[in-house]
């Protein structure tokens, strides 16, 4: 019989099975990051942003397909509402949807997807900004929390920095992880 190289058949879904499994692993990690808040408000604020930024960019790089971030955002919103009970009030779970849409749009501006360090860092900075604005927005508008402007400004600037650091580290780790996994 002749030599034959058989290509993968067309996938039924946009993501193939391996990508779905990897998305699930990332989603599990993202859901697990909620536990970072156990370390307290101050440490939590720093570490959480870094880890989440890192995971989002790593996922985008490792899976490397458009809509990775958006998919994670949608799945996470559902998971937070249904499964984790969204500890801090179910409405805030929608943060994960809105910020994912923003980050998805930014990452799509680089080719390949999430392929530019600058865009990744900028993207996570905006991601952090949106995350916090939506979160605070829900707390202020819906829950009626009153906060002074200086505190709001502080609460918004911190995640911009920490998420951006996460994006930077995610860019480095993402490429390393991708190489390690592809050679396994």
């Amino acid at each position: 019989m002749d030599d034959q190289t058989v290509d993968r058949p067309k996938n039924k879904f946009y993501f193939n099975n391996r990508e779905i499994v990897m998305l699930a692993a990332f989603l599990a990690l993202l859901l697990a990051t909620n536990l970072i808040w156990i370390t307290g408000y101050v440490v939590g604020n720093v570490i959480y942003g870094i880890v989440e930024g890192l995971l989002m960019i790593t996922a985008a790089i490792v899976i490397g397909k458009k809509y990775t971030v958006l998919t994670l955002g949608v799945a996470r919103t559902i998971a937070e509402i249904l499964i984790a009970g969204a500890f801090v009030g179910s409405l805030t779970a929608f943060t994960f949807l809105i910020n994912a849409i923003v980050l998805e749009a930014i990452l799509q501006s680089s080719k390949p997807y999430a392929g530019s360090l600058k865009i990744n860092v900028a993207g996570t900075a905006v991601y952090g900004l949106v995350t916090r604005i939506v979160f605070i927005g829900i707390s202020v508008v819906f829950y009626g929390m009153v906060l002074p402007t200086w505190l709001l400004a502080f609460m918004i600037i911190v995640p911009v920095i920490t998420f951006a650091i996460g994006g930077f580290l995610g860019d480095r780790i993402g490429n390393r992880v991708k190489n390690a996994i592809s050679s396994m």
């Binding site: 019989m1 002749d2 030599d3 034959q4 190289t5 058989v6 290509d7 993968r8 058949p9 099975n17």
Partner: peptide
């Protein structure tokens, strides 16, 4: 193999008379 993993294959595999190349 051959449906989910790529490679260079020679020869024939039949399971229950079904050629594994032709059947998913």
């Amino acid at each position: 193999i051959p449906h989910a993993v790529n490679g260079h294959k020679e020869g024939k595999v039949e399971v229950f008379g079904l050629d594994t190349v032709k059947h998913e």
